[in-house]
Lab assay of single mutants.
Amino acid sequence: TELRLDINGREIKVDGADKETLKELLKLAEKNNDEKAIRIIRHLLER
C-alpha cells in the first residue's frame, strides 16, 4: 500500500521516503499542527 499525506495542500508520498525526508515532512506537519500527519511520520521514523 502507498501512504500519502496531504501536507500544506500538497499530497506527499511518505512510505519509502528516507529519514531526512521524513524529518523535513515532520517539521512541515508540526508547523501546520497536523496531528494525524505528525503521528504517522513519527511512527515511520521509529521503524
Rank of each mutant, 00 (worst) to 15 (best):
T21Y: 09
D15K: 04
L22F: 03
I40F: 04
E46R: 05
R10F: 12
L25P: 00
K27E: 13
K23W: 07
D34W: 06
K27H: 11
L26S: 02
L22P: 00
H43A: 10
E20N: 09
K13A: 10
L45P: 00
K36P: 11
E30Q: 09
L28P: 00
G16D: 09
R39T: 13
E2R: 04
A37F: 02
R10H: 14
R10E: 15
R10I: 15
I38Q: 08
A29R: 00
E24S: 10
G9P: 01
L45N: 02
A17I: 07
R47K: 12
E30A: 10
K36W: 05
E46M: 06
R47G: 13
R42V: 08
L25T: 03
E11S: 12
N33D: 13
A29F: 06
L22R: 00
R47Q: 12
K13L: 14
K23D: 07
N33W: 11
G16N: 08
L28I: 09
E11G: 03
R47I: 12
D6S: 14
R42H: 08
E2L: 03
L26Y: 05
K36H: 13
L28S: 06
I38M: 07
I12N: 01
N8G: 13
E20V: 10
E2I: 03
D18R: 03
I38S: 11
A29Y: 03
K23Q: 08
D34R: 02
K19P: 06
D6A: 11
I12M: 06
E30I: 09
D34F: 07
A17S: 14
K19W: 09
T21D: 03
D18V: 03
E30D: 11
E35C: 10
R39D: 11
I12G: 01
N8L: 05
A29W: 01
R39L: 11
I41M: 02
L44P: 00
D6T: 15
R4C: 15
L45K: 01
T1V: 06
G16R: 14
E20K: 09
K27L: 12
T1P: 15
K19G: 07
N33M: 10
L25I: 09
E11I: 11
E46P: 06
I12Y: 15
K27S: 10
R4Y: 14
K31F: 12
E2F: 03
I12L: 04
V14N: 01
H43F: 06
L28D: 07
K31P: 04
K27F: 07
L3P: 15
D15A: 05
I12D: 01
L5C: 14
D15C: 06
E20L: 03
A37P: 02
A17M: 07
L3T: 15
E35T: 09
G16Q: 13
A29T: 03
H43Q: 13
K36Y: 06
E20P: 05
R42C: 05
D6N: 14
E46V: 06
D6L: 14
K23Y: 09
A37I: 06
E2T: 01
N8S: 04
K13P: 06
T21N: 10
L26K: 03
H43I: 12
K27T: 13
I41Y: 00
R42Q: 12
I41Q: 00
I7C: 09
D15T: 05
K23L: 11
L25Y: 11
R4M: 15
E2V: 01
R39A: 13
